Simulated assay, not measured.
Amino acid sequence: MENRNCLHNFINYLDDEDVYDALEKYWIDMFFMLLHKENIYGNDWICPYYNTTFGNGKKMMDGNPIFSAKSIKKDEIIRIIQESPKNGNVFSYWINSSMGNNQSQKELVIVCTLNNYNLEKINDIIISWIKGNLKDTNYK
């Protein structure tokens, strides 16, 4: 994973497909390094989980989601929606719950701009979610 000080390299991610690809990789690497640091088995996760391409194979490149993962064992999903830094410092999260096919599925949704301060919060939230310690409430 790249150093956190390189976040400025992703500023034009909405306009440059190579930068967008690098940003997606950054989030995936960050997630699996976080799992490794917490001694959590990474093979339980499908990543990316959501399809972010059109039928013709072109990337949607809207940051929704920039990252997604699903736990096979717990049937829980993490989705990160990245906002442009032009929108200021954005950070919120909530838990979506749905019932389908006689199953209950939960999804942690995080909406943020990418900066070091938000990354610290995101790491804490993801680990709390995976360990089952995150309250089923909204944070804005």
Rank of each mutant, 00 (worst) to 15 (best):
W27M: 13
N56E: 14
I78W: 03
D18E: 15
A22W: 07
N87P: 08
Q105S: 08
S71I: 01
F67V: 07
N5R: 13
N64E: 13
K135T: 04
I130Y: 00
S97D: 08
W94H: 09
F54C: 10
S71M: 04
S92P: 12
K86L: 14
V19R: 08
G100C: 06
I80D: 04
I122A: 02
E24N: 13
N56W: 11
K131R: 14
C112Y: 00
K73E: 11
L119T: 02
F10T: 00
F67S: 05
H36N: 15
N138R: 09
K121L: 02
F32C: 07
I130S: 00
S71V: 00
I110Y: 00
N9Y: 14
G63I: 01
L7D: 07
I95Y: 01
M33H: 15
F67R: 04
D75I: 10
S68P: 03
F67I: 08
N39D: 10
I28M: 15
W45V: 01
V109S: 04
C47R: 10
P65Q: 04
D18S: 15
K140P: 08
Y117W: 05
G55F: 12
C112W: 00
C6S: 15
I28C: 12
K37Y: 10
F10P: 00
I40E: 03
T53A: 13
I72H: 06
I77W: 01
S68L: 03
W45Q: 00
G42S: 08
Q103Y: 06
K135F: 05
E83L: 03
K121R: 06
I77S: 02
K58G: 09
D21T: 12
S71D: 02
P85M: 06
S97R: 11
F31I: 07
D18F: 15
I127R: 02
R4C: 08
N133H: 08
K106W: 11
D21K: 14
I110T: 00
